[in-house]
Amino acid sequence: MTLRLIPYLVMDGNANEAIRFYEKALEATVMYRQSFGEMPANPDFPLPEEAKERVAHAMLKVGETELMLSDTFPGNPHQSGNQVTICVSTDDVEQARRIFAALAQEGQVHMPLQETFFSPAYGTVTDKFGVTFQVAAEKQR
């Protein structure tokens, strides 16, 4: 069983600029980057033009560490200072469920743990201490 904690930065439309900055400042290597425009289309939620180039998800390698980041979706609130979250990544769906449920106790669920196109179990929750976590079970390859 694998369990990792990964810092996750949420940017407000400038994630591509941040990626270029971290490539230079931290000697980071881009391992993965996907824009909202590259995600599978959902006819129930058409993608606004201003969202297409924003980063939906990116992963950088900094030394031996990973750093994840994305942009907010246009119109979603972004507050400077609260843009750092922690991604809890596991290869075990049941472990993801247990962790999510524990963090949600006396906390606030922003997105219930659910299957997505990129994870068999993904959700976001702010715990009772005000720390926001993204819990994700890794898709089996």
Rank of each mutant, 00 (worst) to 15 (best):
N82Q: 14
A96G: 04
D71S: 01
M59H: 10
A58P: 06
E49S: 12
F73V: 10
A101C: 07
A102Q: 09
A51P: 02
R98Y: 10
H57N: 15
N76S: 15
F73K: 05
L69Q: 00
M39I: 03
V62W: 05
L69V: 09
F100P: 05
V55W: 00
S35E: 03
K61S: 10
V55K: 03
A41C: 07
D91K: 08
R97P: 04
T85W: 09
G107E: 01
K52S: 13
T72L: 04
L113S: 06
N82A: 15
S89V: 07
A56I: 12
A51D: 01
I86G: 00
A96Y: 02
D44Y: 12
Q95W: 06
V62E: 05
H57L: 10
A96F: 02
T116N: 03
L103D: 02
H110P: 07
M68T: 08
A41Y: 01
P43R: 08
E38H: 12
T85G: 07
R54V: 01
T72K: 03
G75W: 01
M39Q: 12
V30A: 11
K61G: 06
M31Q: 13
A51S: 08
M59T: 15
D44K: 11
D71W: 04
H78Y: 12
Q114L: 12
V93N: 04
G75S: 08
L60M: 10
P43K: 11
R54M: 07
K61R: 14
T65P: 00
M31Y: 11
E38G: 05
R33Q: 13
F36S: 10
A51G: 07
T65R: 15
A56G: 07
E115S: 10
T29Q: 14
F73T: 00
P48T: 07
T116H: 04
A96D: 07
M111T: 14
A96Q: 04
L103W: 01
Q95G: 09
R33S: 09
S89Q: 15
S70M: 11
P40Y: 05
F45V: 12
V30G: 07
L47F: 06
Q105D: 14
R98A: 11
T85K: 13
V30S: 02
F73H: 10
S80L: 15
